[in-house]
Design a protein around this nucleic acid. Structure first.
Lengths: 395, 395
DNA sequence: GTTTTTTGTTCACGGCTAGAGCATAATGAG
DNA sequence: CTCATTATGCTCTAGCCGTGAACAAAAAAC
């Protein structure tokens, strides 16, 4: 709910500055000034004043447009060379990646590193890397976002059951103040990125599912993943949607996540799983299934069927326009499409069968969580309050 | 999402007029002008102009405050005697009720009538009643809201599986233009009312469950039920949350709604059910259970257990702050609290067990859907666009 | 009756956007 | 090469809005 409020003239100006910056960011700094002016329904004079102010505040920088059909050439507002930077990190079960992002969404990968799966082993080096970047371009870094593979409670407390992380205080271990670093759930952030820069642009209600070791899902409503970025509400994997009753590591029984994902694939074949090891093994298994090996194929088919059945339940409940898949889910979709489709259609209510939502693989691939971490920080920065701190720091 | 936008001075004014009217409406026309001024963070002069304008437009009328501690007495802005009216109807399986509502939420019941459960039998008399009211107080009625017991597709197409309504075009049968009459799902509207005038005021994420013949549920996020008022997304009852696999009238299998509600109670005892008949019988059954009769108690306990288990699954997935119950659910909660609680707690993830959400009966009782129908119309009216039509009609 | 307290009203002021008029810089036709 | 065309940027005025201070009003407390 982008509940933008403006009651005074001053807030009106702040609001329009934000609108303009948001438009530049969301289009990836591709739109010309004249196009922005029309798109935001501003008078040319107003746009002139606004852009001028933002350039002076080192938030925007105008570059000549590569092409223009006629008339006086217009400029393309983009990130200022001394403008704000956002750090974004994707913390997976076995490695992390850190990147710097500028307004408009251009990403520069700064570091990638494996880790041992313990909170300290993962977070201490990442914290050092972030702190090293934090001060280097004087005052340019306005915040950091970190995507993690588990639910995040207020204050950045993270649980990752299959890594045995319990109430891990991520900001503390990173050595960074909570609030400056924003910790979020990888699935919720992938959904956020999909809504801003992927296939869910302009979609009102969508379901985004991320399959990795575990299965996560989140509802994306009006461009915002439900449960905020923290993703306490991105736990669709822990509903009993497939009729099972076995205990799950999460503490509940019969969870959908037991039937779908890398862990489920390995479990189905009686192989060791858990602890964040086995991603490669799972990929290998998918390849073996593609090659026609029977046992592997059976495991993939069982996974796909469970995925389809769960999606049907969620579609019944929430009526999304689209369902996007990321992580391993696109592979399951490709390798065993008939099983998935049949289970999906069987599980639908009659009234949903006329126009079932499309089930499509994500446009962002494995970059979703990282991009979502970036967007979550820009979401906080591209507000009247966020810009106010930017100005107060520089003056 | 209340995505309020203001870019020009004029829109700023319109926005503040709406804010003021909303505040009056939401508080039930109880707040004094001085309190509203402070609450909305307006200057006294601004409030003066705003209220003056709204009084002149016959939207507000100021009455003396009953009490005031000191200083110059202030007035209480409330509905204007020639101000806007909203018609709200609650269409149940066996009867309907029509009411007129003024700004602030005061409800005057205009008519109540039983019907035979067919689309024509229910909707033709209701349509006549609404049309009779529509023109009578000259131009005062700004819209009508109708709550129905089934999912509503775009354009007011309604399905009620257990009444065998399939794609019933409600606006058409009512003889009213779609858009002027707003059709919504009863559960979603009850959730909306709960969020505005009940126990969910100020709650960010909540789950509202309505148990009647069927079981409906909706997520209320930031004061808005998900899936809009139409309630295509208010179908939590049709997820397989309890491990069953029997076919449901909805077309899916193992639905939660098969285990909870009046139909489920009767079914458990081998009695006839369906078709919207048996509400009294179900109430009788609850009474017999309260009196200690064993078979009835067993049915109620089974219902409560299924209710608790399903709630746990939804809490795992969505992490609501509160769960509110309406319809028969509060009775189930009262009659078999231990069974419900145990099933609820057993189904929770470990991380949800520290602070499980409260499960509480609704504050609005059976009035929820009617009030929600009212709110859905006022939501459309209390916008810059809605007020613009009010002004254009009067001039 | 006077003082205190709180609220409503009025008005000058600064801030904001719209829109018109003018300047600018490209294209395209001749 | 020149000039009309076209689209955009810049500047300035007019009109609207909310703020806040000064003043008026109306009740309670002393």
């Amino acid at each position: 709910m982008s509940g933008n409020m403006a009651t005074t003239s001053g807030e009106l100006r702040a609001h329009n500055r934000v609108r303009l910056l948001r438009a530049v960011h969301d289009c990836g700094a591709t739109l010309t000034r004249s196009r922005l002016t029309r798109g935001l329904d501003l008078a040319r004079g107003t746009a002139s004043v606004l852009v001028g102010g933002l350039v002076e505040d080192e938030l925007l920088h105008e570059k000549p447009a590569p092409e223009h059909p006629r008339g006086r050439p217009t400029l393309v507002p983009g990130p200022h060379p001394r403008g704000p930077l956002v750090l974004a990190a994707d913390l997976r079960e076995d490695a992390w990646e850190l990147a710097a992002c500028e307004l408009g969404g251009r990403v520069t990968v700064l570091a990638e590193q494996d880790h041992d799966g313990t909170p300290e082993g993962a977070l201490l080096p990442l914290g050092a890397a972030i702190r090293a970047q934090r001060g280097s371009p004087r005052g340019r870094v306005v915040g950091a976002g970190v995507a993690v593979a588990g639910p995040v409670r207020a204050g950045g407390l993270v649980d990752v059951p299959h890594l045995r992380w319990r109430s891990v205080n991520v900001p503390e271990l990173l050595g960074l103040p909570d609030g400056w670093v924003r910790v979020g759930n990888d699935t919720a952030l992938a959904g956020l990125a999909e809504a801003r820069r992927g296939l869910l642009r302009g979609v009102q209600v969508a379901l985004h599912l991320h399959v990795d070791f575990d299965l996560g899902g989140v509802l994306v409503v009006g461009g915002h993943p439900l449960g905020g970025a923290s993703g306490m509400g991105a736990e669709f994997g822990h509903m009993p949607l497939t009729g099972g009753s076995e205990p799950c590591m999460c503490g509940a029984h019969g969870c959908w996540a037991l039937e779908v994902g890398a862990n489920a694939l390995l479990r189905h074949l009686g192989l060791a799983y858990g602890g964040g090891r086995g991603r490669d093994q799972a990929r290998l298994l998918l390849a073996r299934a593609a090659a026609g090996e029977e046992a592997a194929s059976a495991a993939v088919t069982a996974n796909s069927r469970a995925l389809g059945r769960g999606i049907a339940a969620l579609v019944n409940a929430h009526d999304p326009e689209v369902v996007t898949l990321s992580g391993l889910a696109p592979d399951l979709h490709d390798r065993a499409a008939p099983a998935l489709s049949r289970a999906f259609e069987d599980g639908l209510m009659t009234i949903r069968r006329d126009r079932p939502p499309r089930i499509i693989p994500s446009a962002l691939g494995r970059r979703g969580s990282l991009l979502g971490a970036m967007e979550s920080v820009f979401d906080a920065f591209l507000t009247p309050e966020g810009l106010a701190t930017w100005l107060s720091v520089r003056s």
